[in-house]
């Protein structure tokens, strides 16, 4: 057998333990899939693979056991998935019959969002699809995930960009019955941003994380659901070298700002990537250039909304191997 492994990998197939077979990765942008595609994936697994499927942490499917001989045919077979799940949402795909055009930038994943979850502050799938459209296909290794609220169920804190939904709660004293449900809940479950003084609720904007739980608690809608915002946490990662949680970069960022900074990432990588390494991940690039440089470049041309707060410094820590556990 002879083929270009780089090309195969870019096409979203994997080099596996077994020399004869490959595995196909299917993206599900925003983690939400029309059930009709499942039958197609099943068909491919039965016909070309070994009849099993692996569900990935990034909310994709991996179809193992596909013979290398079949990969072009499999590409043709998945054309409706590329049509329906990528082209449909605006991703530029030249020929859907040739399989995935890139695999570097990973599937943009999302928690279930406000189509189902009561805590979510927005439609995570819809926004993930918009981001997918803007950044895919791309070979640079970037991981992005969107959570509906700061509970961060999709674990954006382990991604290069964790985008967490926020909402501005607006208090209307004239509707407040002083039940303190919001205050007690914020104290017990969130960040103690609320207090009750002179028979009204006060919100400490510094402590408030915009989760919107006060809005959910209120029996009179005294907390109005205000504008939607985002918290962006960056450069979290697993991996062998210095795993760590992402740290806050932006708070109260508008949707436009979030979309714009994600778009800017690629130019930054382009300028600073160490091409001698195999696919350097963005987090390590930031480690090298330093946060100030990253910040300067990623905010270039971005018009920040007035509410948006930016981290002055970020110290990720994480842990280094070699330390005693």
């Amino acid at each position: 057998m002879s083929f270009n492994t780089k090309k195969i990998k870019k096409n979203a197939f994997r080099i596996t333990k077994d020399r004869e077979v490959t595995a196909l990765r299917i993206r599900v942008p925003g983690g939400h899939i029309n059930a009709k595609y499942l039958s197609l994936i099943k068909e491919i697994a039965d016909e070309y693979g070994n009849g099993t499927l692996h569900i990935t942490t990034r909310q994709g499917f991996e179809v193992p056991g596909i013979s290398f001989a079949d990969f072009e045919e499999v590409n043709k077979k998945i054309a409706p998935i590329l049509e329906g799940m990528e082209k449909e949402i605006g991703v530029k795909i030249a020929d859907p019959r040739e399989g995935y055009p890139a695999a570097g930038t990973r599937n943009v994943s999302a928690c279930i969002g406000n189509r189902v979850c009561r805590y979510s502050n927005y439609d995570t799938t819809e926004m993930a699809q918009q981001i997918e459209k803007n950044i895919f296909p791309n070979d640079y290794h970037v991981k992005i995930a969107l959570s509906g609220c700061p509970n961060d169920c999709i674990k954006g804190h382990l991604q290069d960009f964790g985008i967490l939904g926020m909402v501005e709660p607006i208090y209307h004293q004239e509707r407040c019955i002083g039940c303190k449900a919001c205050v007690d809940n914020c104290h017990k479950r969130v960040t103690s941003a609320l207090s009750f003084e002179q028979e009204r609720v006060l919100r400490d904007e510094k402590r408030c994380i915009g989760c919107g739980e006060c809005i959910l608690q209120c029996p009179t809608n005294a907390w109005e659901r205000g504008e939607q915002f985002f918290k962006v946490v960056i450069m979290g990662r697993t991996g062998k070298k210095n795993p760590r949680l992402a740290k806050p970069f932006l708070k109260w960022a508008s949707r436009d700002v979030v979309i714009a900074i994600v778009n800017n990432v690629y130019d930054y990588i382009e300028r600073h990537i160490d091409t001698s390494l195999a696919k350097e991940h963005i987090g390590y690039i930031v480690d090298r250039t330093g946060y100030p440089k990253f910040k300067e470049e990623i905010l270039k041309g971005v018009e920040l909304n007035s509410e948006c707060e930016i981290a002055d410094k970020i110290n990720w820590n994480g842990y280094q191997t070699g330390e005693k556990i």
């Binding site: 406000n114 009561r118 979510s120 502050n121 927005y122 439609d123 939904g165 909402v167 919107g212 809005i215 959910l216 209120c218 809608n221 109005e224 659901r225 939607q228």
Partner: peptide
């Protein structure tokens, strides 16, 4: 529009 407690739900009042 979008003013009920859960996001993207309308408040009828």
């Amino acid at each position: 529009k979008n003013k009920d407690s859960f996001s993207a739900n309308d408040l009828i009042t």
